[in-house]
Structures are given as C-alpha cells and as structure tokens.
Amino acid sequence: MADVEDEKALVDRLRAGDKTACAQCVELNAPGIYRLALRMLGDEAEAEDVVQETFLSAFKSIDGFEWRSSLKTWLYRIATNVALMRLRRKTPLSVSVELPEEEGAETVPTQLFDWCCLPEHDFATTEAKTELEAAIRALPEKLRAVFVLRELEGLSGEETAQALGVSIENVKTRLHRARLWLRERLAGYFTELAHTHEEG
C-alpha cells in the first residue's frame, strides 16, 4: 500500500509541476525505459531518444493520466508507442502489410534436435550471448514488445496488457509464440554446435 500511496503523491507533485518529482520519476523509470527501447530498436542513440521523448510526453500529458494502470506501466506504454512509431518509420511497408502473418511465422517447430544438454560453457560464451541478442532483435515487432516487457522487464501479464492496450490472453499467446520463435532461431546455432562436437 505504501508504494501506491507514494506513487499517488508523486503524481500529484508531477501535476503541480514539481521539478524534484520530475527528477525522481526519471531516476526511478529511465533505466527500465532505456532497456525496453534498446531491446526494441537495437540502437543506443535511438533508445536514448525514446527515453527523452517518453518523459517529455509524459510530463506534458500527466494531467491526462487516469490511474487505469500504475505510473510505471503508463510510462512503458508511452515508451512502447514511441519505439513502435520509430520502427514503423524505418519499415512502413513491412509493418502494415506483413503483420498478421509475421506474428505466427516460424512458431511451428521444425528444428527438433535436443541441444539442451550441451556442456554449460557452450551456453555461456560471448558467441552464444550474441546469438541470443541477435535473435531477440530479430523477433517480429509485436512479439518483441510483449517479450521485452513481460520477460526482460518483468511486468506482469496484466501490466503488459495495459502497456500495449491488448488483452491478457493476447499477451499469453504472443509470449508463447515469441518463446517458440526464439527457440527455433537458437536451435540452428546450438544444433550446429552440437554436431561440431560430435565430429570433433
């Protein structure tokens, strides 16, 4: 309850234009918003721009904040929209035309080699981490938004649904597809690695 009361007091101060409250809000939320933007866009400078745009927009429209979600979730919602708009500016045709198909693409498993029991050090290499980062960046955008909010930022299903303006069921479905999509993509790399070990 203390958190909710603290947040209400913070929002009241933000509405009153209290600069200390603005600084507090930025300190609390900028790191998470930056991580979200970086995972969505894959570019540090652009992620920084998203963080700036998010807070400029939030402070300007704080009077319109209606407590349908927490302040943090509201900020994530603004940030996600800003990031998605930037993505759409980059690839307008692919987003509008291919969206329905891309959500379901590559979620039916075709890679069926069981690479889960490779030696642990194979999963801890820089190469393996780079592969995983690249896979996350390559996730179809609608799956990526859910995945980053839910799995990397740790929002609940309900908070993720509020941040994206979709149903909780939709969050669950997209998250499941994102996991299958990542599994399929990683399978290519780890299967090849396993075969290399066998040959060696």
Binding site: W115, C116, L132, E151, L182, L186
Partner: peptide, 11 residues
Amino acid sequence: DTLRKTIQLYH
C-alpha cells in the same frame, strides 16, 4: 527441453 533452456538463457 529446448524451450525450457531458451527461457533459462534469456533470463
């Protein structure tokens, strides 16, 4: 198995 491992890796 590999789905579980994928989840573990990104976490």
